[in-house]
Design a protein around this nucleic acid. Structure first.
Lengths: 94, 94
DNA sequence: AATAATGTTATCATATTTGATAACATTATT
DNA sequence: AATAATGTTATCAAATATGATAACATTATT
């Protein structure tokens, strides 16, 4: 096999990875989108994670965990957090 | 106590109920909003729950359960279902 | 530099979602 | 009216979210 061939394999592998990444990214995009909106709102309002946790009725560690994007939040949880920041959740499909 | 007084209590109770209802409704609104969008998209595309389930990688009973609004879906689940209908989930806080 | 405030991570217990299966109900088709 | 297609409900097991607590890390304040 030529070096070009090898290179192609490598490139293909890269592209595959990129596609996987893209698919994975598309899946996680809504999560990161809503998280960054929440964080932004919290910062704008100068509210600490602890204060937000208090309003939501949970612990600051749980807010941190949520903001880290390390798990798949439920819709109700998003609604609760948004509401505690004086906001409403709006979802639509396009 | 006058009848008017009694009536007032009753009305107040009703209003309280309405408030509770309103709060509850506000909490559940996003859920019902996204569900109806999903159902509408599925119907428009003439796809059965079974076909949608197949695409999502689950069972038709689970799609039915989801569409019934009887539980609190995760964001990933919403993304998967939307994607299976050729749509993307968009969330924002207002 | 010391202290306080804020945020992070790990872990456990509990509740809930999700997948799967099957029986049943409703609606459409022939 | 009979059959097929579609949707619903109940139930179980497994995976995961969520709440809680505590120890730690980072950042801001004095």
């Amino acid at each position: 096999m030529s070096k070009a061939g090898i290179k192609f394999e490598v490139i293909k592998e890269q592209l595959m990875k990129d596609d996987e990444f893209k698919v994975e990214y598309e899946k996680l995009k809504p999560r990161y989108e809503i998280i960054s909106q929440i964080i932004e709102a919290r910062n704008t309002q100068h509210i600490t994670q602890e204060e937000l946790a208090l309003r939501v009725g949970t612990q600051k560690s749980n807010i941190s965990r949520f903001e880290s994007g390390s798990y798949n939040p439920s819709l109700d949880f998003l609604v609760k957090v948004a509401k505690s920041l004086g906001k409403e959740i709006h979802i639509e499909i396009r």
